[in-house]
Design a protein around this nucleic acid. Sequence first.
RNA 1: GGUCUCGUGGCCGAGUGGCUAGGCUGAGCUCUGCAAAAGCUCCUACAGCGGUUCGAAUCCGCUCGAGACCUCCA
Length: 501
Amino acid sequence: MKKFERYPVSLTNSLSGKKEVFKSINPGFIGMYVCGPTVYNNVHLGNVRTFLTFDIVSRYFRFLDYKVRYVRNITDVGHLENDADEGEDKIAKKARLEQLEPMEVVKHYTEGFHEVMRQFNIFPPSIEPSATGHIVEQIEITKNLLDKGLAYESNGSVYFNVRKYNQDHHYGILSGRNIEELMESGRELDNQDEKREKIDFALWKKASPYHIMRWPSPWGEGFPGWHLECTVMSTKYLGETFDIHGGGMDLKFPHHECEIAQGTAATGKTPVNYWLHSNMLTVNGQKMSKSLGNSFLPSELFAGTHSLLDRGYGPMAVRFFMLQSHYSSTLDFSNEALQAAEKGYKKLINAVGLIKMMDHSGKATTNAAVDAELSRLVKECYRTMSDDFNTAKTLAVLFEMSSRINDIKSGAIQLTTLSPETFTDFKNTFLGFVEQVLGLKEEQEQNDEILIGTIGLLIDLRKKAKTDKNFSLSDKIRDDLKKLGVQIKDGKDGEMTYSFD
RNA sequence: GGUCUCGUGGCCGAGUGGCUAGGCUGAGCUCUGCAAAAGCUCCUACAGCGGUUCGAAUCCGCUCGAGACCUCCA
C-alpha cells in the first residue's frame, strides 16, 4: 500500500471554495503548474511565500510516493505594464530604462530568483519553461481561438471575446464574479480602445514602433498577451486537463479566470481539477507588494539592513516562520514574530541533531504506553500534513516529538522501553518531516575540519579544566566561544556538545 | 461602490459544534561549581450583541474593526 493511499490528502479547492479529497487523474502521478515570477525585478519575500507553499505541496506529495511533475514558468514577456504605456510590457520597459537588451534583464533577474530559491531551500521545479520560449504555441492557440470565433482581431491585436465565451461557459467560475457586474464597474472604454468590451483581454498585442520585444505573427509584429503563456505551457507539459494549478491569491482574478476561459475555449476541456491559492504576506496588516513600497528583499532580511528590522535572520528561520501559519491565511511579518520563529527553529533543529546520534540497540522491554504514544505522533504527522498541508499543525506535532527526543536524551525515556520498530519509525518520520517535507535544515553546515577540530580541542581543555575545578578557565572557554557564536552545552557525565548560533 | 476573507491569551499563530494546539515571552522549580541547554509547573483566549443547540471560539443574523480583489502584482 502506497503512502498516499494510507494518508489521502485533502485540499482547499478555490474552484469550490471547499476542502476536497484529492484524487489525481492518473493514479500515483500528479501534474502541477504554478505561476512563476515575472523576471523584471528582484523577488521579494511575499513572492517567496508562494513558492515556498508549493514547494511544500510538491515535497509532501513526493514524500507520499507520488510521482510529481511540477511546472513553474518564468514570465519573461507579456505582462502589460498599463494602458498608458500603450501595452508596453514590463521587460521591455525595464530594458529601455537600463539600456539593456531585454534578455539581459531577464537573465539577470532569473539568476537572482534562482539564488533566492536556493537560499530558502526551495526545490527547483521539474520543468521551468519561459514565455519567450513558447511564442509559436501562443500564436497557435490564438489562431485556434480566432477560428472558433471566440476571439477577434483589432488593429493588429487579438482579443478574447468574453461575452461570447460566457454564452456557453461561465466566466467568473473561479473568482465568483459575474460578467454583468464586471461590465458595469471599473474603467470605461475610451474611444481609441481596440477592445469591444472592457472585460475582453488581449491574446496578442501589436508592438508599437519603439517596443523592443517583438515577434512576427499572422497579425503583424507583436507579443503575447497577459495570460496566454500559462495556458500554453501548462497544457503543453501537463495535458489539456491536469491536477493542480497554484499561485498567489492576487492572481485569482483576472489572471487565473482568463486562463480557465482560454483553456476551456481552446480545448473544450476543463483545464484544471484543483486550484490552490496561497495567501499574502503582510506588513502591519497590509499586503507586501512592490507597488506599495513595503516589500522586503531577501538580501535585506538576511543582512538586517531593512529599516523595520533590528537585525538579520537566516533563511531557515524565515522558512520556519512562514511554515508556522497555514498557506491560506495571511501572515504578518514583524521583527518580534521573526525572533520568536528563530528560537523555535533552533529548538527544533537541535532535536534533529540529537536524534541523528541515537540508535536503538535492538534489545527492548517495551513499555506499551510510551511505545503507543510515539506511534501516535508518527501518524499525527501524516494526518496533519494530509489535512490541506497544515504545516502549522505539523510543526506542533514535531515539537511534541522533539520533547520526546529530549526525554530520551535526558534519560526520562529509556530507549529500551521502545520497540526497535517504533523507534526507527519515529526517527525516520521526524527526520523525514523536518528535512524532506518541511525542508528545514541546519542553517549552516559546518564541514570545516580545522574548525571542528579546534572546537573539539577547546572542549577537551574545558573538560580538563572542569575536572581540575579550574572554573575560571572553563568559564572563559565557554564564554569566549559564545562570543564567537559557538554555544557549548554541558550534558550529563561531563559530556559536552556545541552548536553554532 | 461591488465581490470576498478575516478578527483567538502579553506577542505570533493552529483549530472549527463537547476533549491541552504549538512556538515565543514572563514567573517558579529540577539538573548544574555557576551558567547555557533540557525537563516539569503556572499565566485558559476566542471583537461585540442576539439567535439555533443539551452544549458554540466553532453554525446563523446583525453591529463594529481590519484586509484582499475589482488595474500590473506571489
